[in-house]
Design a protein around this nucleic acid. Structure first.
Lengths: 100, 100
DNA sequence: ATGATATTTTCCTAAGTAGGAAAATAGCTA
DNA sequence: TAGCTATTTTCCTACTTAGGAAAATATCAT
């Protein structure tokens, strides 16, 4: 159950949540976070290892997407409205989507 | 959301699961795990900090119990039947209860 | 092939964590 | 009080992780 370790990290939870806005490339994700791309890439590989995201190569790009079929993800999505911290992250995502 | 970090550790998930059998003292818990009592005690304090267990002092004993009102715990309980690893842990608990 | 862009890998350092042993604390009982 | 038991705290070592910089890889466009 690596998924628990994967979501134990706040940066990864934020990435996962940002990714919930739809499939996107590593660069698009990195642009939204104050973190170097290699670090983002490593977090993504942890999430992939845990089965929480899917990866699809498109030319030079790698498109990541939430593994919505994953039960843990589903539960986390369900949990979000109830947890202050998770809610804060979600609020940030909505803000980001609007301002785009 | 320290709960995620708390359940990211397999020993803590096992402790939590063992504790689901009912309230018990640190010694009773430690007896079931191949780990020194101080280590168990520290794991319990992490779980308590995360709000996943309750603590009640009874003389020289400290009785711990699952914080069943905690949403994360509830979700973990729900998740158990679906996850191979979680199921293995649960099986261990049932075995332990029967052999008592 | 050359150059440009996207991503990952490698290597490093700083920080966090797990677990044990021994000491400290708390509370019971005589 | 002293002695006993239960638990926690402190201190230590080994291991893991996060994150950045630089190098390597992959793919596209010329």
């Amino acid at each position: 159950m690596n998924a628990f370790k994967a979501i134990a990290s706040e940066p990864r939870r934020r990435i996962l949540n940002h990714l919930a806005g739809g499939p996107m490339t590593v660069g698009e994700i990195a642009a939204k976070f104050d973190m170097a791309m290699p670090s983002i890439s490593k977090h993504l590989s942890v999430l992939k290892e845990a089965g929480l995201v899917h990866e699809q190569k498109r030319g030079q790009f790698v498109i990541y997407s939430v593994a919505s079929d994953n039960l843990v993800n589903a539960l986390y999505g369900f949990l979000t409205p109830f947890c202050p911290d998770a809610r804060r992250i979600t609020a940030g995502r909505k803000r980001a989507r609007k301002s785009k």
